[in-house]
Write a protein that binds this DNA or RNA. Structure first.
Lengths: 201, 201
DNA sequence: GTCTATACTGAGATAGAC
DNA sequence: GTCTATCTCAGTATAGAC
């Protein structure tokens, strides 16, 4: 059945989002999905490749929207140089779009980062879009020394990843309420100021 | 033997730094340390508590130096309000101090974050120092709305955690060479500008 | 091609002898 | 304090039914 594959994907997505990747065993997935253990290996090959399939399914649309927004902004600028805020807007806004459709999505993606699964799985799906946005940022900040620029991209990715992490790990900031839309706006202001700061060397 | 406990700690620290926490099995630790498997459970209770002991041993001195530097800066200011740069200096400089003594330290601490072990183990050892520094920052940025301030602290922690991550995961930024001292300076500039940005609401 | 049953290896944890 | 033996559960691999 093609239904089996779907049931596995849906159940895995829900459990990974709720409990995390490491804490979710394949036996729990197949139990709640009502399929056999070996079915996962037949359809995906391994637990990590199951995650990979999940990321592709969820991150694909987000990244597509990111690139579309960036391109639209470039077109709308009509030759004028973009503002860093406009670039971050294109990068961050799609997360709001998807978050409003699926509450668990943000938590799911955030967990992947916080669980350190970035190198093997995430990098692969975000490398392309990151390259594009780094190029756009670089164009707008030509006076920034190369090393300084690269490190700021690094800082940005850390802040971004940490921000996507859901509520569970953010309890310490007692009052951080507000919706996702709000969160994105605050991050945009923070990052824009950080990138605009004068660089050295 | 009290020697057993030390051998376990030293070996675990080395292996965790080199391979990560999850990828290092207790059997590998006891094998290279030349002790018995049950010895870890006798001395520490569990793998996670072994990590906890390690973090305490390594993070304790760093956090002590952080608080000392902050207090010294306040004293030197002599009633004058601190600059955000001075606060970040006190927060970040101790990492350089320790990194110059032990190359593996930074990688070790960074890995803990990137492996998602922050919530249960790290939080406990850094909560105190974070509270102090948040208070100092808040005093210097009184005009910032509370929610905006809290979120910026959140962003900062993400950037900080990601920055401490060693080279292995940072390959993508091909050229990010430079020493740890340099890295800290760049982060200081980035964060200071981010916190100084005008807040909304 | 799809799926089930079952076995294999290695992980962390624990009880009890010495 | 230390060690042996054992337990449970994880991810993985394979043989074979339909």
């Amino acid at each position: 059945m093609i239904d089996t594959k779907q049931k596995i994907l849906d159940t895995a997505e829900r459990l990974f989002a709720q409990q995390g990747y490491a804490a979710t065993s394949m036996r729990q997935i197949i139990s709640e999905a009502g399929v056999n253990l070996a079915a996962i290996h037949y359809h995906f090959g391994s637990k990590e490749e199951l995650l990979d399939g999940l990321v592709q399914r969820k991150a694909g649309p987000v990244n597509a929207e990111r690139l579309a927004l960036l391109e639209a902004a470039v077109k709308a600028a009509n030759g004028r140089s973009l503002q860093v805020e406009e670039i971050f807007e294109a990068l961050l806004r799609p997360m709001v779009t998807v978050a409003s459709q699926n509450d668990q999505f943000v938590q799911f993606m955030g967990r992947l980062f916080s669980e350190g699964l970035m190198p093997h799985v995430i990098r692969k799906h975000f490398h392309e879009v990151m390259k594009k946005f780094m190029g756009a940022l670089r164009e707008v900040l030509p006076e920034l020394p190369e090393q300084e620029f690269l490190w700021r991209v690094h800082f940005m990715m850390g802040a971004l990843a940490h921000t996507m992490c859901g509520a569970p790990e953010s309890l310490q900031l007692l009052g951080v309420s507000a919706g996702f839309q709000d969160r994105i706006d605050r991050l945009k202001r923070f990052l824009s100021a950080g990138f605009r700061a004068e660089g050295k060397q």
